[in-house]
Nucleic acid binder design. Structure first.
Lengths: 234, 234
DNA sequence: AGTCGTCAAGAGCGGTGCTCTCGTTTTCTG
DNA sequence: CAGAAAACGAGAGCACCGCTCTTGACGACT
């Protein structure tokens, strides 16, 4: 039964995969705005209306591309983190940051789809919430592990966090970053926004013609942020 | 002579202004993708081809909207900075940050046009470079003034900047932020990317359903970043 | 073997940016 | 002042888009 039904379903799955693949290639070359169902159909030798048997609308196709993008980015981050020495927490943070930057520069249009302006009105259905936080999850694992290893020590700073706000942060991030004190979470949040702010600036061209060499500047910023968070070697 | 010529040119300028105004309203409601020359023409009671007498292409219309956006944001930032006590440098930094965030939240689609994914292939002609750095210019003025007032003192940090990189930063930002030492510039750069990273996250919906109250969290982050930069009261 | 669901194809709708042509009107000039 | 020149709005049209609906053929299940 499964075998007979699979005859149909297998070709269907294959065609679906092929559509997504062609769409991703179009996305990579033309950008999100240039993704056209008709062009995908043309490249597949199908007529445009046939695509709608597989994706009910252009936005649905975009949504799967978005999910794939989050997964690809998350995978890259996970790989980079796993390759770093487990107790070198500043190093793991730096590896995470460079993974994000490298992936974004290698896939600018997909990065724009994930972290740029929302494309249509906007969509973002619920299936996205899982892959969307894969990078954050890695970050949380690093922070939690550093905290457990006693390698998350607040640097001397003239600025203290409001205890109420710190508690709120602790509560709302308890699942992703368990055990991390609230003030460290707030510092980590600043570092996180700085990371994506930098990458967005660079990918979206705001840094055009600024520093001669952006890579060492990025690396310095990343390490300084790691120190600001309070990460030390375990 | 000017009066006679103005007969035509005045109505032309007026129509141009009206086109931009309608376009901005469409941009605010529909987003950059929903901006349609035909819709603008329809709303003006003109035929679509007539618009091309005033803007040679849709991208040109978008470009003027972008320039206007940079100017509006820059003006808001300048106003906020001017309203703060001149020698309260952490306060001026905080005012700048809140001005950026408030403006972005009030004009999300225009913010997306400025700091989101570049719209078509992308454009960004040279007329943009002036208004584009109005916010950065204010930031530079704050930093330079703080430095002159002796209110820019590096906080105790376990992380030192590479002198070569600091020198490079000093050289490339000498015009915008004269007199500011390189290591402070590097810290300021991190704070800058953190600011825009935060605002982009918030405007683009990445913070959806995170903290209950984003405003106090933002304010804390901003003040912590100010301390990280090394800003103190003069 | 017959029925029913799935599929690709085609035509078509309303929308887009943009081009070209054609009268008209305004401006500049001889 | 009259005529040339430039600017203008209107309209038709091209190629493209997302999306819908119908039609006919093929495959799968009873």
């Amino acid at each position: 039964m499964t075998a007979s039904r699979t005859a149909r379903e297998r070709v269907r799955a294959e065609l679906t995969r092929e559509i997504v693949e062609i769409a991703r290639r179009q996305l990579a070359t033309e950008g999100a705005g240039g993704l056209s169902l008709r062009a995908v159909a043309r490249e597949m030798g199908m007529v445009s209306s046939a695509i709608y048997r597989y994706f009910p609308s252009r936005d649905d196709l975009l949504t799967t591309l978005i999910i794939d993008g989050y997964n690809a980015l998350g995978e890259a981050v996970e790989r980079a983190d796993a390759a770093a020495p487990e107790d070198d927490f500043p190093g793991r943070w730096a590896a995470l940051c460079h993974a994000v930057r490298d992936w974004a520069l290698a896939h600018p249009h997909e990065y724009a789809l994930l972290y740029g302006s929302p494309v249509p009105g906007y969509q973002a259905p619920q299936d996205t919430i899982g892959p969307r936080v894969r990078d954050l999850t890695v970050f949380g694992a690093i922070l939690s592990a550093a905290q457990r290893a006693g390698a998350l020590t607040p640097p001397a700073t003239p600025f203290e966090a409001d205890p109420a706000l710190a508690g709120e942060a602790e509560a709302s991030l308890a699942d992703l970053m368990p055990g991390v004190p609230g003030d460290a979470l707030l510092r980590a949040l600043s570092a996180w926004t700085s990371l994506y702010g930098w990458v967005s600036f660079e990918v979206f061209g705001q840094f055009k013609g600024a520093f001669v060499d952006l890579r060492p500047a990025f690396d310095h910023s990343v390490r300084a942020l790691g120190a600001m968070i309070g990460l030390t070697r375990g």
